[in-house]
Amino acid sequence: MEKWEYKTVKYQTGGFLGGKVDEEEFEQLLNECGMEGWELTSCFDTSAGQGHSRDVIAVFKRKV
């Protein structure tokens, strides 16, 4: 049976009221996790309303 470990990363977009995602910075974060062997399985935001995100949550997995 395969065994997995999971990692959750919270990417903050700005202050209390949220903001917009810095695409280059977020991509760098994803690539760094990928270089460590993590595979992105899910990604979602916590909405602050009016097109702004408070946080982006990325969930990764890799074999143990």
Rank of each mutant, 00 (worst) to 15 (best):
E5W: 09
V64T: 14
D55E: 15
Q12I: 15
F16A: 14
Y6V: 06
Q28D: 11
W38P: 10
E2V: 07
G51H: 05
F26I: 08
K3H: 03
V59S: 12
E2P: 08
A48V: 01
E25A: 15
Y11T: 02
V59W: 04
N31V: 09
Q28P: 02
E5R: 13
M35S: 14
F16Q: 07
H52G: 00
T41P: 05
E39C: 04
G15Q: 04
K7A: 05
S42I: 00
G18Y: 12
S42D: 11
N31F: 05
E36M: 14
E39A: 05
G34N: 02
E5I: 13
M35P: 00
K63T: 13
L40N: 03
E36H: 12
L29Y: 06
Q50K: 12
K3D: 04
S53K: 12
T41H: 09
G34M: 01
E27G: 12
S53M: 12
V21C: 09
I57P: 08
F16H: 10
D45Q: 09
A58N: 03
H52P: 00
S42A: 11
G34W: 02
T13A: 09
K20N: 06
F26K: 06
R62C: 09
Q28M: 08
L40Y: 01
L40D: 05
E36W: 11
V59F: 09
G15I: 01
V9Y: 03
Q12D: 15
E39F: 01
E36R: 14
E23P: 07
E25M: 11
K61G: 07
G49H: 08
L40Q: 03
D22C: 00
H52A: 11
E24M: 00
G14A: 11
G19M: 04
V21I: 15
M35R: 15
G34A: 05
L30I: 11
H52K: 14
I57N: 04
G49C: 05
S42V: 00
D22N: 07
K20P: 00
V56N: 02
K10M: 09
M1V: 02
G51M: 03
L17A: 10
G15N: 08
K10C: 08
R54A: 09
G19E: 05
C43D: 09
D45F: 05
E24F: 00
Q28K: 13
Y11K: 10
G51F: 01
C43H: 07
V9G: 03
E27I: 03
Q50Y: 12
K63C: 11
K20H: 09
C43P: 06
Q28E: 14
F44R: 12
E2Y: 00
S42R: 08
N31S: 13
E25F: 00
A58V: 07
S53W: 09
E2C: 01
G14D: 14
G34I: 01
V21Y: 10
T13Y: 02
W38K: 13
G34Q: 00
T41M: 15
Q50N: 14
E2A: 01
T8R: 07
E36I: 12
G34V: 00
A48E: 02
F44K: 13
D45A: 11
V9L: 07
V9S: 06
F16N: 11
K7C: 05
E24N: 01
G14Q: 13
V21K: 10
L29W: 04
Y6F: 07
G34C: 02
M1H: 04
V59A: 08
F44T: 15
W38C: 10
S47T: 14
S42C: 10
F60I: 06
L40S: 01
V56F: 01
